[in-house]
């Protein structure tokens, strides 16, 4: 059985050592998915497998036979960018752009986890039906995706603007400083 990449059936590599990341980058020339460490430490290689986020450098391609993989190249529909891609541009959620595909794929998977009510390390009340998507909750869930340029604020703003419909807590500025004091 082949592996499905962005809707297209692709043969599995002959060499079982080939990671899903290398399959994408070196065999299929889908270089949008990035390699930042090849050790599962940076998140730059995050892709979606049947809608769930995984780190593709730590996944062997042969493990994903028959599964549907979505990479950053597969997010836009027709000529239209995914709303999160548009939000990243609007909120300046990147500088060099190298961690960006991983951040975007990760955030899409993360939003689905929130939607399903999966708790995180910072979820205060595990009994609630719905998890409050606070800034802290988003930040915790995105902390596996490193950014070295320091676009963290823009990334959070883009994610919140795309997926969170209620106001998330914003903690900067004189008004909130008043509230904190």
């Amino acid at each position: 059985m082949p592996i499905i990449i962005n809707g297209a059936a692709v043969s599995l590599p002959d060499d079982p050592r080939v990671s899903l990341l290398d399959l994408l980058r070196e065999y299929l020339h889908l270089a949008g998915t990035k390699m930042g460490c090849n050790q599962g430490a940076c998140g730059a290689c995050t892709v979606l497998v049947d809608g769930e986020r995984i780190i593709s450098c730590l996944a062997l391609a042969v493990q994903y036979e028959g599964r549907a993989i979505t990479t950053v190249e597969g997010l836009a529909t027709g000529g239209d960018l995914h709303p999160l891609q548009r939000a990243f541009i609007e909120h300046d959620g990147f500088q060099c752009g190298y961690c960006t595909p991983g951040q975007i794929c990760s955030a899409i998977g993360m939003a689905a986890e929130l939607e399903r009510g999966l708790p995180s390390h910072v979820t205060a009340d595990l009994l609630l039906d719905e998890i409050l998507a606070s800034r802290e909750e988003l930040a915790e869930r995105m902390s596996g995706n490193l950014c070295r340029c320091g676009a963290h604020n823009g990334i959070m703003d883009a994610i919140a603007a795309t997926f969170i419909h209620t106001e998330t807590s914003r903690s900067t500025g004189p008004d909130s400083a008043e509230a904190a004091a």
């Binding site: 020339h29 889908l30 270089a31 190249e73 960018l81 300046d92 990147f94 752009g97």
Partner: peptide, 21 residues
């Protein structure tokens, strides 16, 4: 002004050094 290379970067189409087959 938003980055002019933004659309390329958010779609994974900006080619970095190791991405020239």
């Amino acid at each position: 002004v938003s980055r002019l290379d933004g659309p390329l970067k958010v779609t994974g189409k900006a080619a970095f050094a190791a991405e020239f087959p």
